[in-house]
Every structure is written in C-alpha cells, then in structure tokens.
C-alpha cells in the first residue's frame, strides 16, 4: 500500500505528535535526527492528552494497536505519516512490552518513552526504527543498523542512531529526499 502511495506521501511532511507529557528536549532530539539523518520535511503537531482509552487494567499498560487505530482515524493535518511520542508503557497482546510499534507500510508509528530512562538518544533510535517500518523496512541483519531488532535497552544502546546504507537507501527513497 505504501509503495502505491509513495507519490502522495512525498508531498506531505512527517508529523511528530506528542501524547501526554513529553519533554520538549525529546521532541527536539527526534526532529533533529530526522532532519539530519534523512533531511525530510517535518511538522511538530499540537500535543494530545495521554491515551487513557488504550489503558488495560489487567496489564497496567497501554495497548499500542488501539492507539495507532485512534490516531489513524484522526485528521492528520496534512501529514502523510505520523510519529507519535508517548509517555506511557506500551504492549501488544503477546509481548510483555514494546519500545515502539508500527506496521509495515503503515501511516502511524508509536515511540514509548516510558522505559527509556529519559535518554533522548534512545528515543531517537526507536523513532528512526519505527519510521523504517513505515517505509516497508524489515529488521536488518546488520547489528549496528538502527533497523536491527533491539531485544532490550542493552541491545538498544549498542545500535547506532542511523541506518546502514541499504536501509537508508530505502528510507530516503520512500521519504523522497
């Protein structure tokens, strides 16, 4: 789907959407990384409240899929794709937690800041990783590439905050830069 819509995607910026209490420093770091790594047009969208509608009482966590569905149904203010930064702990049903969530070729990616211990460089890596999935990228076998699957914070810290040249080629093609 994303491939078919590439032309229309190129005409619109990537929206960065804060949900709940997200520090300006985090937003700045993520926006800076996208501008530096990919050089694509960005728009920081007005922040929204914490996604209480996705709260699961049994798991005391927030359902990532429900948040994505809600954002997809909203008016994205001319943004072709949205990267939402959330301050809550995310889960998908089979996993205990996720740092972020995005569907291959989808329009909305989530980045949870909850487990990142207020370290912007970690948020940047998750954001670039999930954006890669929006650009149809699988997990990369190159261990330093930001698209490499990070099993935990230790792994995440060993990953570089940029794409390998193959993944970067795909992302820049999809971003039209």
């Amino acid at each position: 789907m994303a491939w078919k819509n590439r032309e229309s995607l190129l005409q619109h910026p990537l929206g960065i959407l804060p949900l709940g209490r997200v520090e300006g420093e985090m937003i700045k770091a993520v926006a800076g990384a996208f501008a530096g790594e990919i050089g694509m047009p960005l728009r920081v969208m007005p922040g929204l409240e914490s996604p209480d509608y996705a709260f699961d009482r049994h798991r005391i966590q927030y359902d990532a899929a429900r948040i994505i569905t809600r954002i997809e149904s909203m008016d994205l203010a001319g943004c072709a794709r949205v990267l939402a930064l959330v301050d809550v702990d995310l889960f998908v049903p089979v996993f205990t937690f996720v740092f972020g969530e995005a569907r291959l070729g989808g329009r909305v990616a989530l980045v949870s800041l909850f487990r990142l211990e207020d370290r912007p460089e970690r948020a940047v890596k998750i954001a670039l990783h999930e954006f890669g999935h929006l650009c149809m990228l699988d997990h990369c076998r190159e261990s330093r590439c930001v698209m490499h699957f990070a099993k935990g914070l230790g792994h995440l810290d060993r990953v570089a905050p940029y794409y390998c040249r193959y993944c970067l080629g795909q992302v820049t093609y999809m971003a039209g830069v």
């Binding site: 899929a65 998908v92 049903p93 999935h133 699988d138 997990h139 699957f149």
Partner: peptide, 15 residues
C-alpha cells in the same frame, strides 16, 4: 485476531 496480527506483524518485520 489480535494475537494473530501481533505475531504476524512481528514475523513480517523480522523478514
């Protein structure tokens, strides 16, 4: 469905 989808997407992302 939700479990199927979660795992399906994870496997797709893993290639």
């Amino acid at each position: 469905l939700i479990v199927r989808e979660s795992l399906y997407h994870w496997f797709k992302k893993e290639g």
